[in-house]
Design a protein around this nucleic acid. Structure first.
Lengths: 144, 144
DNA sequence: GTAAAATCGGATAAAAAGGTCTTTATATCT
DNA sequence: AGATATAAAGACCTTTTTATCCGATTTTAC
């Protein structure tokens, strides 16, 4: 479904969001440990997320990553997916056709429009605050 | 969503299904041309589909691939996907967790169960006869 | 100035995608 | 029956993409 980069990106953002609720800033090392990801690879993904202004990064001693508390309810998982994987998953043809639309559809087009719209809505309607709250309550996990 | 192998596999099977309606047997070359796929790679995928008894292959002069007419309504696209990509797409965690279920869910588990079930149902309820008929009518295409 | 932390450019490894060549099977034509 | 042309099967190789790692640089608090 998603690339590995995107999986790590989502998990990393969620961990940062969780800590940012309490105004805590987290380092790369902490993130990688929390989501069980390769540290250097995670760094690269975080750069992308920082450039997309989904997370804020601070260099130097006591630096790290954070998200402004007020932004948490405004950032959706869809934004993360788009920043890392683009939106091929939302608008690309399931059978890989270059041109595939209602006028010239692939054999699965009409069915997949429904599924992709559902996916898009699901991701667009989730926000970091909600998801982070479930993490806090221990109802969901980022590892294992 | 699907691997390239799977995309080609679905398109190849649909093309074979279309021709098999009229009792025609098609060669690798014809298939690759019809679905615009690399010929040698397509051969490999067809081997997998033949081993999974989704298509019948015949060697030698006038050989090629076909599907018994009576089987067309009994074969679903889900079977093709499972034969090539396995069923990670149907039961794997969207965030890549090894363990992810209702008891120990990832933050997106409950939402993704719905999407994956929808995908599974859609693919399971489609059959080669129906899809091939739309191809015949020119309502859908395998190329472009 | 030093240590901690992110950034940046590139190097390496692994997996997916695609290609080549040889072998095997099978109809058809002497 | 044997030779031949055709077509899939199988083993192996190359390219491309994705994933991962490393080292040098920059930034900042103390």
């Amino acid at each position: 479904m998603f690339s590995k980069s995107c999986e790590y990106g989502i998990k990393a953002t969620l961990f940062i969001a969780q800590k940012s609720q309490w105004g805590e800033r987290v380092s790369l090392k902490e993130i990688a440990a929390a989501i069980d990801s390769p540290i250097a690879f995670t760094a690269k993904i975080l750069q992308v997320l920082a450039k997309a202004s989904i997370v804020n990064s601070t260099k130097g001693l006591h630096g790290g990553y954070e998200i402004e508390k007020e932004c948490l309810p405004k950032i959706s998982l869809k934004q993360i997916v788009q920043a890392i994987d683009g939106n091929r998953i939302f608008d690309g043809c399931a059978l890989g056709l270059k041109i595939c639309n209602a006028k010239e559809p692939c054999p699965m087009h009409s069915q997949f429009v429904i599924i992709r719209n559902k996916l898009s809505e699901t991701l667009a309607s989730s926000n970091l605050l909600n998801v982070a709250m479930n993490l806090n309550l221990g109802l969901t996990v980022l590892k294992r």
